[in-house]
Design a binder for these strands. Structure first.
Length: 844
RNA sequence: GCCGCUGUGGUGGAAUGGUAGACACGACAGAUUCAAAAUCUGUUGCUGGUAACAGCGUCUCGGUUCGAGUCCGAGCAGCGGCACCA
């Protein structure tokens, strides 16, 4: 008897699919198209289990759609720009380009044996000049349409290395290499005007019914639409008034001070003549730029000594403080603080001994605010203390609306809609990215490159032996002629954020060979992506930027308006996790060990390891399992089956050696069963009808599972069905049919094994191209149902009844059951609830 | 700190508001074997009981409901994101 040898059958069927060009996508009108896309990988050089899970999910969908008569596009490429390539060059001397292309080659070699249904003809890397040149062309188009501009923005500055740091390079407020205290520093940078689309990006979320609700909610909160009041505080010293924006104008009577950002023009002006203010501003500039750091850091304030008039009472003067938690790029960079109803303001006021004034109380409580601010939900009715707009009892929202109305009528303020979403800063002071196609000329200013000069290629002759951007020190590359006046000028040395690269790659896949960003008829045909699959970590930035870019590409003529929401359906999968094995060195620092070096909680030398439960697989923690090893030990089908079998796809999955082993055993069993059943004689048997009913139920269940991303549920049904097929005392004909159907239903998951079984049973052509099995409704109908019977919500018995038995009959039968009689213990039922086909509940 | 998510046996997990624990791992027992591996069969939430059965049980505390793992409120813990990691 032949045994299951994935090392033989897997390459064989991969060659067969290649030879038949099974996965090559070509535009054609004879079938509906289906575009399935997984987020493309960063070429780190090694694939990991997260990739295996992500691409296997997409593969299941792609193969299922092929077998249901779709023209499927399932491409693959590389998100190839970014910091790791430069870090590698700094660490070991090579060139980012060589490192990246070598990694791509290595990773591709690891991906091919997985048997994914990818159309490798459309492969590209974002660091290919053919790709980033088109990106530069789009940048110029966007500039022309007013979607690109320059302004100052803060960056993390390492004062020792004299270089800009990424957030992840700032560790505890210090530069990762130099260890120097990081400062915030302003730099002129390039921006995309994503804020022009705030309203549209928000409204568009409503139409994304096939996106996870949580992703839409996160984006909604990120865009952060709010309505508030903008007004000015007049300065008592006659200086320029302070313009503030507030979402809680109803609490104006509780104002205790006016706060301005350290970057507010007034703060800068004061700093010029007041060394104390300058020192305070410098203090505020310490540390990194992340929101987390700003919001969890110590709240610092500085009393400027200046005061403003309260708009409702000219005799009420409020001090102006500079406060480090006020952001210059949200609203007007100035606020008024109402400590009674905002915890951060309250903490600040207690620290600096500023007054706390209650403006409203709960209906049943009038305790003044002490150390905890009273912040009820905006739809809760509260009792107001002498409110200027004449309110007594009203909700926060009603009060806000009434106050805006009041201020507008009185003429001292204006209702204003504000978004939290900021413009997208795309400048990076780094080498390994798409050069921004711009020239700086002393006489013409900032000038766009001519399109015929694109792509502006990265120079190859650069070195990474010192910190900073090599483009900055590359004199021959920097020196250019001004595209406008022809005089000597300087090339822009900033490159683009890698999020730009990944914001339109899905569109490029529709015509990756084109010498324009896209080709109209190809984009029209293939867009939108019907199913997009990727990690939840991209819920906000990547997906929001892509939605913006699709709109910008429409404005610039590179995508149809119908592709403005580029991803029809989104699925966010969980991570692959693994235990961490840890010991301590002589200084009690953790030392990590690879799973393959640990047996039964011990290292080879017998020392015990500490086991830290499931954490995201990461190289630094060494809790990684290399798919390459799994494939050589078990084959790709086992890896594919396991990553989808145990956990719901949207949740994390823990990789366990025993789980992989079990998957391998199961596939062996299927292979053995198939071999045995293929050898059976024909004819009928006792269980034929029952087996075929189970088969149709399995078809229905697995189809539903695949369609709804319930891969783990589909696999559980396949296990159960395989058990039925194995044990059924059916005739050869029925068993053969049941077995081939089992292989067919497994084919999106274990395509190689399924092809092998298909061939074993004399199937025609490839199972990959064979229409998906169809569940016969007539075979799914059940005549009897088992009803559990509860007494007071506790299950006491069950009855098997005809599906359409009358309620009265069911009640009668239920009351006769021994377990029910015992539970009733002579009591009279008050009420009997019969849910047809589901349950009976007797209430006493 | 802010936004979002998750929490069920020894383990991964299943369950349109309707029998909690499907399916799988592990464990235990048996068959097969000279023996082992592989395979096959059975048992397996916890407690008590030979058993029938009973009590308890889905992070915690409350609530809605004939009925809550599921809905609502308040906590606790873990995870993801927070605009220069990708």
């Amino acid at each position: 008897m032949s045994t299951y040898t994935p090392s033989e059958i897997e390459p064989k069927w991969q060659d067969a699919w290649d030879a038949a060009e099974t996965f090559k996508a070509t535009r054609s009108d004879d079938k509906p198209k289906y575009y399935v896309l997984e987020m493309f990988p960063y070429p780190s050089g090694r694939i990991h289990m997260g990739h295996v899970r992500n691409y296997t999910m997409g593969d299941v969908i792609a193969r299922y759609k092929i077998s249901t008569g779709h023209n499927v596009l399932h491409p693959m490429g590389w998100d190839a720009f970014g910091m790791p390539a430069e870090n590698a060059a700094m660490a070991s001397g090579g060139h980012p380009k060589d490192w990246t292309y070598q990694n791509i080659e290595d990773m591709k070699a690891q991906m091919k044996p997985m048997g994914w249904s990818l159309d490798w003809n459309r492969e590209f890397a974002t660091c290919d000049p053919e790709y980033y040149g088109q990106q530069q062309a789009m940048f110029l188009d966007m500039w022309e349409k007013g979607l690109v501009y320059r302004k100052n923005a803060v960056v993390n500055w390492d004062p020792v290395d004299m270089t800009v740091l990424a957030n992840e390079q700032v560790i505890d407020g210090k530069g990762w290499r130099s260890g120097a205290d990081v400062e915030r520093r302003e730099l002129t940078q390039w921006f995309f005007k994503i804020s022009d689309y705030s309203e549209e990006l928000l409204d568009g979320l409503d139409g994304l019914e096939n996106w996870p609700a949580k992703v839409r909610l996160m984006q909604e909160n990120w865009i952060g639409k709010s309505r508030g009041l903008q007004f000015s505080f007049a300065r008592t010293d006659g200086g320029d008034p302070i313009e503030v924006y507030t979402t809680r104008p109803d609490t104006l009577n509780g104002a205790s001070f006016v706060g301005i950002s350290p970057d507010h023009p007034l703060a800068k002006e004061l700093a010029e003549n007041n060394p104390e203010v300058a020192a305070f501003r410098a203090e505020c500039a310490k540390g990194g730029t992340t929101a987390e750091e700003l919001e969890t850091g110590e709240k610092l304030g500085f009393d400027t000594g200046l005061t403003v008039q309260h708009p409702l009472n000219p005799d009420w003067h409020l001090p102006i403080w500079i406060a480090n938690f006020i952001l210059m790029d949200y609203g007007t960079g100035a606020i008024f603080a109402c400590p009674a109803h905002d915890q951060r303001d309250l903490d600040f006021c207690r620290k600096y001994d500023l007054p706390v004034i209650d403006t409203f109380f709960a209906l049943d409580d009038d305790t003044p605010v002490a150390i905890e601010a009273f912040v009820p939900p905006k739809d809760q009715v509260v009792r107001w203390v002498d409110h200027f707009a004449g309110l007594s009892e009203a909700t926060g929202q009603e009060a806000i609306d009434a106050t805006i109305d009041f201020a507008e009528k009185a003429g001292w303020g204006q209702g204003k809609t504000q978004f939290r979403l900021r413009d997208w800063g795309l400048s990076r002071q780094r080498y390994w990215g798409c050069p921004i196609p711009v020239v700086h000329c002393d006489s013409c200013g900032v000038v766009p490159e001519k399109k015929e000069n694109l792509p502006i290629r990265l120079p190859d002759d650069v070195s990474f032996d010192q910190p900073g951007n090599p483009l900055d020190r590359h004199d021959t590359w920097r020196q250019v002629q001004c595209p406008k006046c022809g005089n000597a000028a300087r090339r822009e040395t900033d490159t683009m954020d890698t999020f730009v690269d990944s914001s339109w790659y899905y569109a490029r896949f529709t015509a990756p060979w084109a010498d324009t960003p896209t080709v109209a008829e190809e984009a029209e045909y293939w867009m939108n992506v019907d199913q997009y699959i990727g990690g939840i970590e991209h819920a906000i930035l990547h997906l929001l930027y892509s939605r913006f870019f699709a709109r910008a590409m429409n404005v610039t003529g590179h995508l149809p308006a119908s592709a403005s929401e580029p991803f029809d359906a989104l699925f966010t999968q969980g991570m692959v996790t693994h235990e961490i094995y840890q010991t301590r060195d002589d200084q009690n620092r953790p030392v990590y060990h690879l799973p393959k070096d640990v047996t039964d909680g011990k290292l080879a030398d017998g020392s015990e390891v500490e086991i830290i439960p499931s954490a995201k697989m990461s190289k630094s923690k060494k809790n990684v399992v290399d798919p390459v090893n799994i494939i050589s030990a078990y084959g790709a089908d086992t890896a594919r089956w396991f990553v989808l079998s145990d956990s719901p796809p949207e949740r994390d999955v823990e990789w366990t050696a025993s789980g992989a082993d079990a998957a391998f055993k199961f596939l062996n069993r299927i292979h053995r069963m198939a071999t045995e059943i293929a050898a059976l004689d024909g004819g009928a048997g006792a269980d034929d009808e029952e087996l075929l009913r189970a088969m149709h139920k399995a078809i229905q269940d697995v189809t539903n599972g695949v369609e709804s991303f319930g891969f783990n549920a589909a696999i559980a049904k396949l296990y159960a069905y395989a058990n039925v097929v194995q044990k059924a005392k059916a005739g050869g004909d029925a068993k053969r049919q049941a077995m081939v159907t089992l292989a067919h239903l497994m084919s999106p998951f274990t395509p190689h094994l399924s092809e092998e079984i298909w061939q074993m049973f004399g199937g025609e052509g490839l199972i990959a191209n064979t229409p998906w099995p169809f569940a016969d409704e007539a075979m799914l109908v059940e005549d009897t149902v088992t009803l559990p019977i509860q007494v007071n919500g506790k299950r006491r018995s069950e009855i098997a009844v005809a599906k359409d038995l009358a309620k009265e009959e069911i009640e009668k039968l239920a009351l006769e059951q021994e377990g029910v009689v015992r539970a009733l213990d002579g009591a009279t039922p008050k009420k009997i609830i019969v849910v047809p086909g589901r349950i009976v509940n007797i209430v006493i």
